[in-house]
Simulated assay, not measured.
Amino acid sequence: MIKSFKKRIILLVMLSPFAVFAQKQEINILKFKNVNELKAFFKHGENNFPIISGHRGGMTKGFPENSMETFANTLKYMPSFFEIDPRLTKDSVAVLMHDATLERTTNGKGKLSDYTYAEIQKLRLKDPEGNLTDAKIPTLKEAILWSKGKTVMNLDKKDVPLEMTARILKECNNEAVMLTVHNAKQARFYLDQNPNWMLSVHIKTKKAYDEYVKANIPWESIIAYIGPEYTPENKELMKLLQDKGVMVMISSAPTYDKLPTAAERAKAYIDIFKGGADILESDLPVEVAEAIKNEVPKKTPQHKYLGKAKI
């Protein structure tokens, strides 16, 4: 009788979702020993590995955006880096949240800035379909520390002051990060704080390109976002930038990710890379990886920075 009871207990523990969660899973990682290797990975060349950026981590059923749970899930399928969205709580804690309000992504209501960090820890995140999950809102510092040795976080600019972002990065002691900037002035501020930091810069026009040249922003320190689709102007920009060794990024989040069928989306993703883009940022990074899997070169300069790990 006692043995039978023990067997039932062991079975219940094995079937527990916490036991399943505790099992280590293998993920794809980007491994950099130093910031020079990070910059080498993001250097344009003629035979590059097509790089995928998960917009807010990705939009997958069961996994909320801007969460470590989603980052880990996406990395199960391919190496990737992630665009994330830091915002401030009422008591000035930088957390990950795209919207200024809570309703779409959490079971909370109102503005994030009306809640303290302690208060938002009582909330839970929703997945893209609005289903409540067990995931909590992470801090920016937690995300950066989690990413070390696994991936690269690209910090978008919301309401966190540049000075605060710079301070947090220094506290985390992780130079394998990227900072989104919308103009040359912001780029210069960050590089004056730390010349090693990588930047994801918005260069959608020749005028913007010229501003970065005038500000003496080093080409080896940037990737360039040129827009959500190809235009005659940004194709010219792409050549200018790639001739400098700069990788260019197209974001399909507001455009091609919205196409009605998986087949249409897959064709668009393939065409983006065939058109010359080095990086594709997408809400659907797992779909992108599946679409382009037969287009990935077997050997590229980036391959030596790809690896596997268990978390």
Score class of each variant (00 low, 15 high):
residue 247 M to G: 08
residue 74 T to F: 00
residue 69 E to K: 08
residue 6 K to Q: 13
residue 96 L to N: 03
residue 81 F to H: 06
residue 167 R to K: 09
residue 208 A to G: 11
residue 8 R to I: 14
residue 109 K to E: 11
residue 11 L to N: 09
residue 270 I to P: 03
residue 45 G to C: 15
residue 241 L to W: 02
residue 280 L to P: 00
residue 239 K to Y: 04
residue 297 P to C: 14
residue 288 V to M: 00
residue 210 D to P: 09
residue 161 P to T: 07
residue 19 A to W: 02
residue 52 I to V: 15
residue 45 G to E: 12
residue 264 E to S: 13
residue 171 E to R: 04
residue 184 A to F: 07
residue 121 Q to N: 12
residue 272 I to V: 12
residue 189 F to M: 08
residue 31 K to T: 13
residue 260 P to T: 15
residue 188 R to P: 10
residue 157 K to W: 01
residue 257 D to Y: 12
residue 247 M to N: 11
residue 84 I to F: 01
residue 119 E to F: 05
residue 33 K to S: 07
residue 106 T to G: 03
residue 209 Y to A: 14
residue 194 N to Q: 11
residue 238 M to C: 13
residue 67 S to I: 11
residue 82 F to I: 03
residue 36 N to C: 07
residue 303 H to A: 09
residue 59 M to Y: 12
residue 255 T to N: 03
residue 174 N to C: 09
residue 85 D to Q: 07
residue 49 F to H: 13
residue 223 I to E: 02
residue 237 L to E: 03
residue 46 E to A: 15
residue 248 V to P: 02
residue 79 P to K: 01
residue 160 V to A: 06
residue 36 N to T: 15
residue 267 K to N: 10
residue 58 G to A: 13
residue 59 M to L: 14
residue 180 T to K: 14
residue 178 M to S: 13
residue 232 P to E: 12
residue 274 K to P: 06
residue 40 A to R: 03
residue 137 I to S: 06
residue 141 K to T: 09
residue 301 P to N: 11
residue 235 K to Y: 09
residue 149 G to E: 06
residue 121 Q to D: 08
residue 128 P to R: 11
residue 149 G to R: 10
residue 80 S to E: 10
residue 157 K to S: 06
residue 229 E to W: 04
residue 219 W to G: 02
residue 279 I to V: 14
residue 170 K to C: 03
residue 305 Y to I: 11
residue 267 K to H: 03
residue 48 N to E: 13
residue 249 M to P: 01
residue 250 I to E: 00
